[in-house]
Design a binder for these strands. Sequence first.
DNA 1: GCCCAGGAGTGTG
DNA 2: CACACTCATGGG
Length: 286
Amino acid sequence: MGAKFELCIRPLDLGQTLGCGQTFRWSQRPNGTWSGPLLDNCLVLTMKGGTLHAKAVPGNRDVKNDLRIHLRAQDDVSKIQKVLAEDKVIAKGLRSMRGLRIVKIDEWEALASFVLATYANIPRIVKMINAISREYGREIVGDVFSFPTRAELSEASVHNLAKLGLGYRAKYLHELCRAVDEDELRHLKKLGYEELREELKELPGVGDKVADCVSLFGFGKLEAFPIDVWMERALSRLYGQKGSYAKLREFAASSFGPYAGYAQEYIYLNERAYASAGACRFTSGR
DNA sequence: GCCCAGGAGTGTG
DNA sequence: CACACTCATGGG
């Protein structure tokens, strides 16, 4: 039982890619490997000499291709970085993030995950997602659970979801299960970015920011540019850009075009690093 | 204890 | 269009 395989995807840094808050289900082990559920397999990933080595349990279906899709092996990340580095702000921050890749998450998982992600910090988001997976998903191997399907999750009552620590998000998630079905997801996959985000925004718990996260990470729209509180601060601090979501979104589209999603990730991580460096200075000043 | 969190929904000016 | 307010709760 289980499967082993290798993939040559470059550039790739597992920590930068899986631990940066675009996906919530991977965790780093003490020995530097990364593990987590991907659809109906549990994977353990490690880098050896620039090559990705993977172990999959139980090794269902075409897990190798699932991982290739998840890590967006088709992206020419070096070229994207080269284009985006024309922006001096990004060029500077980029140096420490060469191995970051945008991931492609299952559409339903992305939708449900980012509805839960509203107004919560990342450790809490991870906790909520683990809780609903444990309660309503299927056990893949010991203590690793798949993300619950829409059908599985629609069995949950608002009350039981709230008990898992979702707060007011319990109601959104419950309504989302009823507002979306497989036909709707199939329909959404056919849409271009602008149409997609407008239709996503019709769903309960989905506003501008969640629609962009789901477009980017769930539907693979690299031109999407999610703007959360961190991005607002970064755009103000680094570019002097302030104003409504629509205005900031327009700035991003004109500045970063088809690779706005990658630009967003570089700027977002840059801002978080800046904040934690500032906090460190502050606390160490005694 | 306090502040904040990868915001959205609703109502008002 | 822009704001203001509320929502429920855990993490740092």
